[in-house]
Design a protein around this nucleic acid. Structure first.
Lengths: 152, 152
DNA sequence: CTGCTTATTGAGAATCGTTGTTGAAAAGAA
DNA sequence: TTCTTTTCAACAACGATTCTCAATAAGCAG
């Protein structure tokens, strides 16, 4: 988990595995680095952001890049109970966090806990796995939905 | 998280929210209760199991029931990097566990940790959420895939 | 036990996020 | 520059999941 990627550190990490640095990949990483804290994007969200910025990157490329960067550990892939994946920068210690999700209304709260990353690292290490990401996902019912009489 | 549901405890929990106990729901819960430890099913897996057992339950009903039981906290919904969700019984303490997943080959290892459920409960409680499930998901690269020269 | 109301089912169509395919463009190496 | 290989955009294709609708059956009240 690297805090901030520059063009050249990204290039280095890509080339190491035989991949290439392209303007599209650089642009996409930039969007995530400039995102307000706590904000995450779906593939379509990212597509729209890029359209508005005038950088028309195709949806296929977006999907490929998101998946690539998740597999490199640069991005985290989040499953936020909305039928599609969301992505955010995979940041180290002081910013590393987890998600508490209401299964009814999908309201999501971030929370931090220092132990979890330690527990995760240890578990991965024990079996010789190389850690990319470690997220505690809590499915629950928020106070509002508990009060609501509405079934479903 | 209840350890074992009987027909009547399931019925009670359903009726409480205005839902009904049907033979299909009972059958599906039974399949999960009789599943070998560490085994989880996708919707399609479950459909096939039921076909073989002669209980032909439609795919629509299966999807609806899985989602319903996940929202009730009876089942856990797992995202095991295979393009579709998997489900397993949501069991309490001694059986409660987490998943370590290789992002390359999808090999998955289960592991246990007593602290995580405590951390999760506390986080939910803090914001007044009613806890349904709490899972630590670790994305990593397994030893075999680390050795493989194959990119991607 | 009977009848009423409303949730649930099954079958298949429809949806929608995501992945695959193609020829053209461009990065990296020599 | 020139060659090789990856990556790109555009669009077709796929597959898991959801939706629709008429028929059925829980649960409840009398």
């Amino acid at each position: 988990m690297i805090a901030t990627y520059t063009s050249s550190s990204l290039k280095a990490e890509l080339n190491e595995k035989g991949w290439r640095l392209t303007p599209q990949r650089e642009t996409i990483l930039n969007v995530f680095q400039n995102l307000p804290k706590g904000k995450h994007l779906s593939a379509e969200d990212l597509y729209n952001v890029l359209q508005e910025e005038g950088a028309g990157i195709s949806l296929s490329t977006i999907y490929r890049t998101l998946k690539l960067m998740a597999r490199m550990g640069i991005l985290r892939e989040l499953e936020l109970a909305e039928g599609h994946k969301h992505y955010e920068l995979n940041q180290p210690h002081p910013y590393h966090h987890h998600h508490l999700i209401c299964v009814r209304c999908s309201k999501t709260i971030e929370f931090k806990n220092d132990q979890i990353l330690k527990i995760g690292s240890k578990a991965a290490q024990k079996d010789g796995y190389y850690l990319l990401d470690c997220q505690l996902t809590i499915h629950a019912v928020c106070p509002t939905c508990q009060r609501s009489l509405m079934p479903t």
